[in-house]
Structures are given as structure tokens and as C-alpha cells.
Design a protein around this nucleic acid. Structure first.
Length: 236
RNA sequence: CAGGAUUUC
């Protein structure tokens, strides 16, 4: 069964969705009992096929077989809804589950925030974050990252930086991916020199910066015509 | 044995 799960997951990743479902059906015909991993992968397969109804029906199958869904199974379904521009519905489902004490965890909220961001519904995305805070949930760097990405994409660098500062104030650690978003946004709105300044600040503060950060910084330097500085950065 | 965001106009 473990190898079947592994295989099915690979098939789903390669969009061989029907094959994955066939294996699932074979499994059951052979009398094997799918476990919570199997069901999660099957839900993902149906979501990728845009068959959200079937995906939801899997929860029913689980109940029949006495397998309790876990946070993964719930969240993968919420994510499926969001990927089909149904973030508002996804959020409603999340709230219902929450009221039923279903274990969705912080990841479920991140999924919904990302969904709203993708639909350019930043107000809604931020509402979700506020909702989390009111419930006393720990808003992690992924939640903030998703929202910051939204404001960056909208060119609202002020808001993005405000959120980033808010993270620091709350003791949520930042990371180079969020910094990349901000630097990139600065470049895109024509503030390349500010991006370079920020890059130097982060570098001096000992923050870990990845190769993407360097690419963004080099790009910024090139745009300012400071090719020599760009080259010296490249050397490391 | 399954899931999370970023550059290369």
C-alpha cells in the first residue's frame, strides 16, 4: 500500500490523473484498505481534474471505511477549491469545519489567503489574517508571505513593508523568500536603488539570502547602470 | 507513503 501511495502521488504530479484513480480502484478491488495518505492523494487527483464534487465524495468514502480525515486531507480539498477560484467558498467551508472542531490547522488558513490573493481579493485575504489573530492562532511566515506577495503584485510596497514590520514586531521570523518578494517589488515599481539599499541592510544584518535574492539584487544594480557592482556581487 | 509562497520583461 505504501508503494501504491507513492506511485499514485507521482502519477498525480505528472498529471496522469486517470491512471492514479484506476490504481485507487484496483486497490480496493484487491481488498487493500486505503489509508489516510491514499485518500489524501485521491482527493488531490480529483481536484486537479476539476472534479471537486468527486473530491468531496471521498470524505464520505472515508467515513464508510472508518478512516478519519486529517489536516492534510482537509487542506488539500480547500486548496482544490481555491485553485478553481472558489476561495470564498473555501473560506466558508473552513469556518464550518472550524466550528466543528475539525483539525485544519494554520495551513488551511494559508491556503485560503493564497487563494484570495490569486483572485486579487486582498481585502478578503487580510480579513482571514485578522480572523486568525482574533482566534489566537499563530500567524506564521507562510501566511504573511502569501499576503505580502499579494500586495507586492499589486505594487503596494508600503503595505507590504508594513506587514513585514508587523511580522517582526510579533516575533514571526522573516525569511529570504519574503525579502525576495519585497526587493523584487521595489525593482518593479522603479525603486531599484532602494532595493539595493535594502539588500545591503539585510546582508549586513546577517540574514540568510539565497541565490534568488542575489539575482534580484544584481538585476537592480544592472538597471541602475552599476555594472561593476553587479559583477562584484556575482563573484560570490 | 502525501501538502506551503519568490527572480531571470
Amino acid at each position: 500500500l505504501l508503494s501504491c501511495n507513492f506511485l499514485m502521488n507521482r502519477l498525480v504530479e505528472h498529471s496522469k490523473l486517470d491512471t492514479a484513480v484506476v490504481i485507487y480502484k484496483q486497490l480496493k478491488l484487491l481488498g487493500l484498505r486505503p489509508n489516510v495518505y491514499t485518500y489524501g492523494i485521491v482527493i488531490k487527483a480529483f481536484c486537479r481534474k476539476s472534479n471537486l464534487e468527486e473530491a468531496f465524495n471521498v470524505f464520505g468514502e472515508m467515513e464508510e471505511s472508518g478512516v478519519a480525515p486529517n489536516a492534510y486531507t482537509y487542506c488539500i480539498y480547500l486548496e482544490g477549491l481555491c485553485e478553481h477560484s472558489m476561495s470564498a467558498f473555501s473560506y466558508e467551508v473552513l469556518q464550518v469545519w472550524k466550528s466543528e472542531s475539525v483539525p485544519v490547522g494554520v495551513y488551511g488558513y494559508t491556503v485560503v489567503i493564497r487563494g484570495f490573493v490569486r483572485e486579487n481579493k486582498l481585502k478578503e485575504a487580510e480579513m482571514v489574517l485578522i480572523d486568525m489573530e482574533q482566534q489566537g492562532l499563530f500567524v506564521d511566515e507562510y501566511c504573511y508571505g502569501a499576503l505580502i506577495q499579494g500586495y507586492c503584485k499589486a505594487g503596494n510596497i508600503m503595505k507590504a513593508i508594513t506587514l513585514h514590520d508587523q511580522m517582526a514586531a510579533k516575533g514571526v521570523s522573516t525569511n529570504c523568500i519574503i525579502i525576495n518578494l519585497i526587493l523584487q517589488c521595489l525593482c518593479q515599481i522603479g525603486m531599484a536603488s532602494e532595493a539595493v539599499n535594502q539588500f545591503n541592510n539585510f546582508k549586513d544584518s546577517g540574514m540568510f539570502l539565497d541565490d534568488v535574492t542575489y539575482n534580484v539584487a544584481i538585476d537592480a544594480l544592472c538597471k541602475k547602470g552599476k555594472l561593476d557592482e553587479a559583477v562584484s556581487l556575482l563573484m560570490r
